[in-house]
Write a protein that binds this DNA or RNA. Sequence first.
DNA 1: GGCTAAGCGAGACGGTACGTCTAGTCTTGGG
DNA 2: CCCAAGACTAGACGTACCGTCTCGCTTAGCC
Lengths: 213, 213, 213, 213
Amino acid sequence: MNPRLPDLRDRSDARRPKGRPRSHEAHVAILKAALSEVHELGFRALSIDSLSVKSGIAKTTIYRRWPNKAAVVMDAFFYEIGPGIAFVPCEKSVDSIQIQMQALAKAFRGKFGPLIKALLGEAQFDPELAEAFRDRWIAPRREAAKAVIRDAIGKEELRSDIDLDTTIDALYGGLYYRLLIGAGPLSQAYVDDLFRHVMGGLRPRSRKGSRQA
Amino acid sequence: MNPRLPDLRDRSDARRPKGRPRSHEAHVAILKAALSEVHELGFRALSIDSLSVKSGIAKTTIYRRWPNKAAVVMDAFFYEIGPGIAFVPCEKSVDSIQIQMQALAKAFRGKFGPLIKALLGEAQFDPELAEAFRDRWIAPRREAAKAVIRDAIGKEELRSDIDLDTTIDALYGGLYYRLLIGAGPLSQAYVDDLFRHVMGGLRPRSRKGSRQA
Amino acid sequence: MNPRLPDLRDRSDARRPKGRPRSHEAHVAILKAALSEVHELGFRALSIDSLSVKSGIAKTTIYRRWPNKAAVVMDAFFYEIGPGIAFVPCEKSVDSIQIQMQALAKAFRGKFGPLIKALLGEAQFDPELAEAFRDRWIAPRREAAKAVIRDAIGKEELRSDIDLDTTIDALYGGLYYRLLIGAGPLSQAYVDDLFRHVMGGLRPRSRKGSRQA
Amino acid sequence: MNPRLPDLRDRSDARRPKGRPRSHEAHVAILKAALSEVHELGFRALSIDSLSVKSGIAKTTIYRRWPNKAAVVMDAFFYEIGPGIAFVPCEKSVDSIQIQMQALAKAFRGKFGPLIKALLGEAQFDPELAEAFRDRWIAPRREAAKAVIRDAIGKEELRSDIDLDTTIDALYGGLYYRLLIGAGPLSQAYVDDLFRHVMGGLRPRSRKGSRQA
DNA sequence: GGCTAAGCGAGACGGTACGTCTAGTCTTGGG
DNA sequence: CCCAAGACTAGACGTACCGTCTCGCTTAGCC
């Protein structure tokens, strides 16, 4: 996504780039400054200038590595959240999904909520940021979710005729909807409710003719 | 939502406000300029300055009526969309829901998609805008949806033990999710899929142990 | 000077102007507000808007009577200073001059100093104001001074070959110079010094060849 | 006077200031634009915005160096007038004074008149500008004048009991008076007249009782 | 009492400039 | 090639006044 980002993988065998190597301290200092700023003042109040002053790193250096403040904050976000919210294996795979949804909602309620709101808000105006967010945050989690769902289907915990993507949207759409639109709380009870509604469906069970079109 | 907006309701009996009345032409000129700008260049490129130049209305006049460009664009959005997407009565109420979801998705795919994306994106940073958007866009539609869902429950098209808000989130969350995150197309097929998944539930029907709390 | 000013002279015989007569209360209210503002905040901080708010008189009314704030303040100045600094008759006419110079310096040191500085400062950019100030403030005082100087020449207190205008400039120039440039205090001692230097001349008395070119 | 101005003195030995050095071209471009504007349109019509457009220098750059337009124009004034009006040595020191007075009056009549009027007019509202004008324009000339007057006293061309400051005020006050108040022309004849009156004094020579304190 | 004419209060309007802010780039010296 | 420092271009921001205008209402003289 971001060609300016350093490749942090070990490349002892690769040829060293010419000139003075980039300072890792500078990198971390900026990310930490970004996190502190974004948590204290919010994304909008954060500027590359303020970042430069706060971190003691020259503006030039920041621009050498990131194209704009959204990219910095995105990296800072991943720096802080690390591997992020994962699926923990459960006996029943659907439990694993429910637990992960609760973990995600908890993150939304906590310090990551504003960060994700800001990144997604900004992404509405910045296609590159949007793509990066999808690639680095959304996609991995969806892939993991798909694996779990496939598992659940295999164990006959879920219907065999469902579409993976649509299923994920039905389950998680509500969470992001509430995060971004704020029409209601993201409480534990709500997450359970949402999970139950989607899992059980809205149509009456007793009805015979309840085959969907 | 916006106390600066003139109350345009008929008040032939009420006493006229003092001073020179606000110009309706100016009002409309600004909204039209805003629409044109936001459709052509996008929300970010739109500025109050450019709006002023384009509409021929002084900047001060714009600021006298709206606190910032987001508020202008919001009004412009409602000016254009008018009453918006409504529920058309159907024999089966669930059909009415599905049709409305398709209409919403169509609006998202059309010229209103970028507008709503921009407004919701901006709302992540502007609590007042967020509230206004909820009050003027989200809430009315949710209320209408609730009425239809209640109808459907009454006709036993939907289960009687569902929660209205959660139901709405389950149905519409996916639409906003796709709009805002862009993880996939908002096609007709997708909307039908989503509707079917949520209506029918994810759990196998044949299974006896399909407990729901 | 100001054609918008009402002619306040009695004209019982003259035909009354048509329409609603101008309010004298409004007139005075504005002048008093202007004086209060200019003394408290200075000329620059005073605006027609603030004047309107402070006096409770509509902006339109102010503009109907004065072309700009400088004209208002000028009228306010004369409203406050009234007939102003006059020459008091003395046995020796030169004493009358010296006393009047002291009175003027005292006014400069007091509350009229900032007012006159402001009016003269503004007059550098506003030819009409400059002309009005000359006509209403400078000219009458110069005329009075000329009369006294003529008297003094008649009494042989002053040389008969002096030019009236140049004489006035020589005596008063220093006062305005100090007021406007602030190169030194306008103390009593200074005024006496200035008077003495100009009266006695700079050239040594003993010298024979001290006929001026 | 203006701490934002770069110190242009040679400091080959001194350490260079950090960062990108200020552009001399920009500096000169702004001053030239200011002179052109102030001569063509006058001080009031000149704005930092117009200066920016005319000079092609960004507004921020101008504000980085000067606090307001008066400060720019003041610098432009000195940029144009250079060392300014100096005293040329004459056999008789009083002649040197008279010649310098004529030179000053000529400058007042020429293109520098409006500039000085504007600066002094503005200085009535801006104490910092007033101080700067005194320090950079008034003071040096007064110092030079004092030296010449001391010379003249030494040569017995002037009385030994005169006060230097008062003497200067008596001679030059009239020039600034006419410049700022415009009560009469600043002609060559007027300057000679003024000089003669002050030099010779106003009191009759023949009179015995021409007491001076 | 109605008519005409002007004054008045209120506040909207077009317009100009202000001084500040942020973005992102460029230019120094030095590592 | 990196880094710190800070100047630079560009342009939007939101505010302050300016002087004008457009209303409804008031206050006078005149018919």
